[in-house]
Amino acid sequence: MPAKATRVAFGEAILELAAKNKRIVVVNADLGKSTMTQKFAEVYPDRAFNVGVAEANLIGIGAGLALSGWIPFICTFACFVIGRFETIRLSISYSHANVKIVGTHTGLGIGEDGYSQMGMEDLTLARALPNLAIIQPADEVETKQAVAYAAEHDGPVYLRFTRQALEPVSPTGYTFQFGKGTVLREGTDVTILGTGGPLFNCLQAADRLAAEGIRAEVINISTLKPLDEELILRSGGKTGHVVTVEDHTIRGGLGGAVAELLSEARPVPLKRLGVQGFGESGDPRGLYAKHGLDPDGIARSVMKFLKI
């Protein structure tokens, strides 16, 4: 299967789902081209709305539709939608509105447009809302299933997608299970918990580590909320070292969630990899290398963490 951006897989998935589920509605904020929902708007013009460059209105209209029995997917860049946090907090979250928030263009992976367009703190903010489920699929197969799941899930969901194409990482015959992580590679020396964009690099880093005699267990944490606590505690307990990898700030995202879990339930040394400061412009590969999210960077950080 060729590499595919999860935003592209989302655009395909929502089109297929809408054929069966007549309650699905798509609302955009002048980023239909970028969130890959233009095809949906062509095929289902009566169930597609573009509110223009107006994200707070996007959120509110989504809430109103959901509170009246529709299933709206509200779609724009992650930073712009989650950036209107307080509107989500009240209109969607506290109202228990069944809105599916779709945030694309996440992390350094968007590349040249730079920090102002990068979803970089969206997981941190989304995690704070008690009833908002968070799913970040890692490849095409997982995206299609996660989107189908989100449409059925009773309650608000935040779906986080990439601009850049992602290599497949899911095992053959994979079935997405909400709230469950997936062991992509078993190991005994260190647990690498990855999510979204950098997961393929985590697997490649594991290859490099294997060459050094280190057996890394690589786990895909695609549901960030609720977290698969049991799996993380089990793996961390086995290996004694946990590393988190995400294309997102290291403050409050996957790394933050795992730090909260481990420190309360079972203290295990933890290293969080991700973005330390602001993002910046550049080609995605170059940015991953600069910020240590490429295979070499991840492998290097793991070795340093294990003091090898």
Binding site: E112, D113, G114, Y115, S116, S281, G282, D283, G286, K290
Partner: peptide
Amino acid sequence: TLRKVGSRFQGHPY
């Protein structure tokens, strides 16, 4: 150097 890694010429004003 616009939009290249390390440039101060960011893709949007910084």
